[in-house]
Design a protein around this nucleic acid. Structure first.
Lengths: 94, 94
DNA sequence: ATAAACTGGTTTATATTATAAACCAAAATA
DNA sequence: TATTTTGGTTTATAATATAAACCAGTTTAT
């Protein structure tokens, strides 16, 4: 009846991040921070979790002299997101 | 862009309970326990939270000699569930 | 009749999570 | 050169989810 929801994705901030990343090639930390309306600290932690799960790729570089963190979704991440959405439908389509 | 998701509903077990209750007049504790595959303790706690929020009504009676807990969704609960589902769509419709 | 197991839960403790606050290095600005 | 801003990370705290322990009463087996 109710499939389990991937706990990693069943989190408002991480889900918002994945939702953004799934429709772009890559996104910068500051872009994600602004779009999700999150604090930098919280975002940093959640990106780590998604990254450790292999759902996203996080690349650190520099733009000019400033640090630049760029994120992109992985194949595994896309699959996980799609599965999550499918499972979720069992809960919300009465 | 992303509306906040009601934290009370953004919980696998509570969401499953609401999902069940929205399509029936009322449901017994044991029915909810079985359908959601939850432990009694966890279910008990989560029903309390939904009840305190005014999202469900919990009635305690007896069937024969055994205690019987019966739950039903309230108007407020229906509204909250519908709002939650609508907000959620922003996250999952890329 | 009495012990053992089961029903229908609640309460309490613990692990996990989310979030905020504090911090840091470097760069830009006043 | 002091102050603020940028772009974050780390650490501490609050909130949540979950499991484990418990409880009152009932049924079943001995």
């Amino acid at each position: 009846m109710f499939n389990d929801l991937d706990p990693l994705l069943h989190s408002q901030l991480r889900l918002a991040v994945m939702s953004l990343l799934i429709s772009v090639e890559s996104a910068e930390f500051t872009f994600l921070k602004e779009k999700t309306n999150s604090t930098a600290g919280n975002l940093s932690v959640q990106l780590d979790k998604l990254s450790e799960a292999g759902y996203i790729r996080v690349e650190k570089s520099f733009r000019g002299k400033k640090p630049l963190t760029t994120c992109s979704i992985t194949k595994k991440g896309i699959k996980a997101f799609e599965d999550y959405v499918n499972n979720l439908k069992q809960y919300i389509n009465k």
